[in-house]
């Protein structure tokens, strides 16, 4: 029993070491300008380890290779894990500005600001915060029920409002995962009015366009761009963020 667990531990350690080494190798490749090799190394690391650094460096490598869609995809993953990282936000913005399609941000500035505020903490952080605040608020509620002091009521209201804030943040992040968002990873795709090659072309989207997938049918996906316009594209031209 103990031998087995020790063996497992050693194996895990070995695994970790390999990923770390691979990551360093990827960095070395990047420094030499061998972006293709760096991509391979980082991709391998990202299969073992979920870390925003890996996704960020991977995004950088794809960007240097001119693969905008893949770059944006990985920057978004990194941003999801570390939303307060300034470098990730900067490079994501930078890559977005390189796209062929100039899709205007249709959101109102207030909404954009709100999203920025609510996404100040990552999903995992907000989950922990919301849960512990909820527990704390329940504790205060219990105290209020037992001792009936006004102070507990005020404290409870304060904490529950904070808890609500993080719950909204939680939901906003959850939508990112469950909303089937994807990035176009082909240089140019024509979106048609139906799932197949023989339908009328509606719009041409390019590498890096961020879309939401409404429906998939027989190798085709109905995508929608931020403006609301959309069409059917082959699913192999898309890559889901989560």
């Amino acid at each position: 029993m103990t031998t087995a667990s020790i063996c497992a531990f050693l194996l895990l350690a070995q695994f970790d070491l390999n990923s770390n080494e691979l990551y360093r190798k990827g960095n070395a490749y990047y420094q030499q300008g061998k972006y293709g090799e760096a991509i391979v190394a980082y991709e391998q690391v990202s299969e073992e380890i979920t870390n925003s650094r890996v996704f960020y460096n991977l995004g950088n490598s794809y960007f240097k290779r001119g693969m905008l869609g893949k770059a944006i995809l990985n920057f978004r993953k990194a941003h999801f894990l570390s939303p307060r990282d300034d470098d990730i936000a900067y490079n994501l913005d930078f890559a977005r500005n390189y796209r062929v399609d100039r899709i205007a941000d249709m959101r109102s500035p207030i909404l954009a600001l709100l999203s920025k505020i609510f996404r100040f903490v990552s999903l995992f952080e907000t989950q922990l915060l919301a849960t512990s605040l909820f527990l704390f608020s329940i504790l205060l509620l219990s105290l209020l029920l037992i001792y009936r002091r006004k102070i507990f009521l005020y404290a409870f209201i304060g904490v529950i409002v904070l808890c609500l804030f993080f719950s909204i943040s939680w939901q906003s992040w959850r939508a990112e995962i469950t909303g089937s968002y994807a990035v176009v990873v082909a240089p140019e795709v024509s979106a048609t009015s139906g799932p197949g090659g023989n339908y009328k072309e509606i719009i041409v989207v390019h590498d890096g366009a961020e879309v939401s997938v409404r429906e998939t049918r027989g190798g085709y996906a109905l995508i929608q761009l931020p403006g609301g316009i959309g069409g059917w594209v082959p699913t192999n031209t898309l890559e889901y963020i989560f």
């Binding site: 770390n20 960095n27 990047y30 960020y56 995962i177």
Partner: peptide, 29 residues
């Protein structure tokens, strides 16, 4: 674009979201 993140001694696994154990505090509450 800004430069890549440097080497680290140990790459920690970042959690994307909490697991099912998150239900415990709620039941407890």
């Amino acid at each position: 674009i800004r430069y890549i993140k440097p080497d680290v001694l140990h790459l920690a696994n970042q959690r994307m979201s909490a697991g099912w154990w998150l239900l415990f505090p709620y039941t407890f509450a």
